[in-house]
Design a binder for these strands. Structure first.
Length: 271
DNA sequence: AGATGTCCCTGGAAGC
DNA sequence: TGCTTCCAGGGACATC
């Protein structure tokens, strides 16, 4: 579910409401991807200062340490005053003085990890190799092109890897490459400066617009207040294999790249 | 070091 | 209806 826009929309939907809250109780359900790294009870009494985002991670700054939170493939957060009883897929919960933060994650690819500070080895392992923030000031076309020039693998896989630019997931990768007119299998290093600049712009435009509209990709998504997004990405290519391209009517093609599906138009996208 | 394949887990849809 | 198979928005890790 969550690519960068959904994570950012989730952050915005509860950051102000949880800021300043004191943790009254912490509980875990089934194990998530990684262990929390501390006893849940040791979180009790601490205050949540702020909620930031890095790539697809949410960072809950505490007055002592921080929590790294990842939604994986199927995770979603809710922050409610009076939540219902925890369900079978609610695997992490913080009861605070200002509401209950709860992670629901059926597939349990998500994670909540405690780190003493951002330079903690635990945090560095997860955040250390992340690429540029696509909506940040450091994401500039020249640096982007430089990053791509060093990579021989397919541009789609370089986007997904997240070490050049973060936040572009499997759906947006196909969409963004369509908008930029670039075939997904093109080696990243073969992209000219102008084509890299086009891709840079497509990434910015699509992600920024999705955040503005409150997220929502192709399936269910709701923010921490339970509100659906209004972006309703009208996919040009994703999951449209066999259907006519909305621009040129050529049938959209599907391929597998690194065990993930990719969709593109042979006519509109050039190698 | 970079590229590639494997695996973690549950559930829904499609096929038989 | 019920069983099996495949697929899903992520990413760390092992291997070459």
């Amino acid at each position: 579910m969550p690519e960068l826009p959904e994570v950012e929309v989730t952050r915005i939907s509860f950051a102000d409401r949880i800021a300043g809250a004191q943790i009254l109780e912490a509980r875990m359900g089934k194990p998530l991807r990684w262990p929390l790294g501390c006893g849940p009870e040791s979180l009790v009494g601490r205050h949540v200062l702020a909620v930031r985002r890095r790539g697809k991670y949410l960072l809950l700054d505490l007055d002592q340490g921080l929590l790294l939170l990842h939604l994986g493939m199927s995770g979603s957060l809710s922050f409610m005053l009076n939540p219902p009883e925890p369900g079978k897929h609610d695997h992490f919960e913080l009861r605070t003085s200002q509401g209950v933060l709860r992670l629901n994650d059926p597939r349990r690819f998500g994670a909540v990890v405690f780190a003493t500070h951002e330079a903690d080895p635990v945090a560095l392992k997860l955040l250390g190799k992340l690429g540029m923030e696509p909506l940040g000031a450091d994401f500039d076309p020249k640096l982007f092109h430089l990053g791509l020039s060093k990579r021989k693998s397919a541009i789609k896989q370089v986007l997904l890897a997240g070490d050049v630019v973060v936040g572009v997931g499997n759906i947006y990768a196909s969409e963004v490459l369509f908008l930029a007119g670039i075939r997904p299998a093109t080696p990243a290093s073969r992209l000219s400066r102008p084509r890299a600049a086009r891709l840079h712009q497509a990434i910015r435009d699509v992600l920024a617009r999705a955040v503005e509209r409150g997220g929502s990709t192709l399936r269910d998504f709701s923010n921490a207040q339970g509100e659906a997004g209004h972006f309703q990405l009208d996919a040009m290519v994703y999951a449209r294999d066999g259907q006519a391209c909305k621009v040129c009517a050529t049938p959209i093609r599907a391929i597998r790249q690194g065990q993930r599906s990719t969709f593109f138009c042979v006519q509109c996208q050039k190698p």
